[in-house]
Design a protein around this nucleic acid. Sequence first.
DNA 1: TCTGGGGTCCTAGGACCC
DNA 2: TCTGGGGTCCTAGGACCC
Length: 359
Amino acid sequence: MSDKKRIILHVDMDHFFTAIEEREHPEFKGKPVIVGADPKEGKGRGVVSTCNYEARKFGVRSGMPISKAWKLCPQAVYLPVNYELYTKVSERVMEILRKYAVKFESWGIDEAFLDVTSKVKDYTEAETLARRIKEEILEKEGLTCSIGIGPNKLAAKIASDQQKPNGLTVVKPEEVEKFLEPLPVRKLLWVGRKTEQKLQAMGIKTIGDLARYDPTVLAETFGLMGKQLYLMAHGIDRSEVEERSEIKSISREKTFDEDTNDFNLVAKTLDGLAEEVYRDVLRQNIYFKTVTVKVRYENFETHTHSKTLSFITNRLDDLKKTAKELLQAYLNPNVKIRLIGVRVSNFASFEKQKTLVEI
DNA sequence: TCTGGGGTCCTAGGACCC
DNA sequence: TCTGGGGTCCTAGGACCC
């Protein structure tokens, strides 16, 4: 389907975690609220997951070390991440959104893309639809969101970020290039810190700079990604709105309160994480072949070590034994460990499992 | 700035097979 | 002793997303 014909919405819930906490605790209204790691009087490890707009006035941002947030705003209400609650609210919000879309794609816990092409006849109607969506979410869940409307996912996503919170931004097909031109490249999907730095070194700061750059050089420098960058800079994105298929991996990891070379503690923690992964494996009726152990040392150097079994399994014993085996390679009495993690992947569907058993 | 936790996708080299 | 081409799987690392 060509870009001209589609109408895509991107819905982004406003400071989702803290908005839910404020809803559950009216006494927080008007106060800075920060959801994330335990600040421990400024000594805590970990980061800010979400903060409300009152906290942002103090310079607090999501992803920031919690110790820094504490320095900027010690008087804030600090809360742990209550995933169970947020997931429940998310499911209800997604259910509301899904009704409005012909094609639907959730994007993390608090965002979604909706293809509404055959539900509306033009952008005016799309805007009306977006307002209805905002009303329904506010009425049913007491939460606000920001919506972007555009001819593709890229334009819609960037548009939803333009006016926050509680915003609505429409970018029509003929306006896309002009809309993107002055924005920093970092706004593009898949342009993170590293790519931004590389582009900066090439003299590319804005999406407009990128659009004017030689596509051949971009392809040489960034491979497949380079071609994608050039197209995105021109507002072209043909990717479909589609529901994510099955899950590809399940993992758990834990950063220790203090870096440690107590190998008993490390092994015990790994066992605990394996048990949590195992619970998920059972719940989802999954068979895995590959086990990966992740270690982060005190200097933040991070390694993964994996093993693919010659058989597929869903047994805790296989998981624990393989993980323990993989861990051995990392135990060095001279270097403390900051984080330990375990992951299973390379899943076989139940059908595949049956076939193999029959053979 | 002293950097969580749960994911996805890409790349590149090497093993192995036909 | 030298040696093609294609395909798939495995492993490790890295960038990115929320």
